[in-house]
C-alpha cells in the first residue's frame, strides 16, 4: 500500500487475511496472504492435493473446481474471492451424485492416461452435465475444451461424458 489515507480503506484493506473457507462441506479457518490463489490455498494450506496446477494462468483447466456449483479456475481465483462460496474439489466428487457417475465413466471409458489433468476433467465434466451442455458429442467437445489433455484422451473423455450424461438423464 502506498498511502491508505482514507480511513475506511486503512481499516479494511489487508495483506494478510483470516479466511473462512467451506470446502467439500467442511469449514476451514486459515490465515493467508491476500495474493494467494484458491488453488495454492487448497494445495499448500489445506493439503488438498487433488486439484492440480498445470499452467497457473487459466490456460489448461487442470485446477478446475466448483464454487457454488459452477466450474471455475482455482488458479485465477483468489482465495479471498472464494470466501463466500461453497468450494467443491475433486476430493468432494465421490460424494457428488453426478460427480460419482462421471468418475466411474472415466474409468470405464479410459478417459485418462497420466491422470494429471483428470481431476479438472472430472469436475469440469460434472459441471458440463449439470449445465445441460452434454447434448451431443460436438457439444461435449466444445464444453470440455477448457480442459487440456496432452495424453490425448479426448475421444474417450467424450465417451465418458456422454455415458455419464445418459445415466443422469435416465434418473
Amino acid at each position: 500500500m502506498r498511502s491508505a489515507d482514507t480511513p475506511f480503506v486503512r481499516s479494511a484493506a489487508r495483506t494478510d487475511l483470516d479466511l473462512h473457507l467451506r470446502v467439500n462441506g467442511r469449514s476451514h479457518r486459515i490465515r493467508a496472504e491476500a495474493r494467494e490463489t484458491l488453488l495454492d490455498v487448497l494445495r499448500e494450506r489445506l493439503g488438498l492435493f487433488g486439484t492440480k496446477k498445470g499452467c497457473d494462468h487459466g490456460q489448461c483447466g487442470a485446477c478446475t473446481v466448483l464454487v457454488d456449483g459452477r466450474r471455475v479456475l482455482s488458479c485465477l481465483t483468489l482465495a479471498a474471492q472464494a470466501e463466500h462460496g461453497a468450494v467443491t474439489t475433486v476430493e468432494g466428487m465421490v460424494e457428488h451424485p453426478v460427480g460419482r457417475l462421471v468418475q466411474a465413466a472415466f474409468v470405464a471409458e479410459d478417459g485418462l492416461q497420466c491422470g494429471y489433468c483428470t481431476p479438472g476433467q472430472i469436475v469440469s465434466a460434472t459441471a458440463c452435465i449439470l449445465e445441460g451442455a452434454a447434448t451431443s458429442d460436438e457439444a461435449i467437445r466444445e464444453a470440455m475444451s477448457g480442459n487440456l489433455c496432452r495424453c490425448g484422451a479426448y475421444p474417450n473423455i467424450v465417451a465418458a461424458v456422454r455415458s455419464a450424461a445418459a445415466v443422469v438423464e435416465r434418473r
Binding site: 492435493f49 466428487m93 462421471v102 468418475q103 470405464a108 485418462l112
Partner: peptide, 16 residues
Amino acid sequence: LARVDGDRKVRGEAAY
C-alpha cells in the same frame, strides 16, 4: 482390463 490406477486418478488420490 480397465486401468487399475483409474479410481485413484479420478478421485484425485494419485500422488504426483
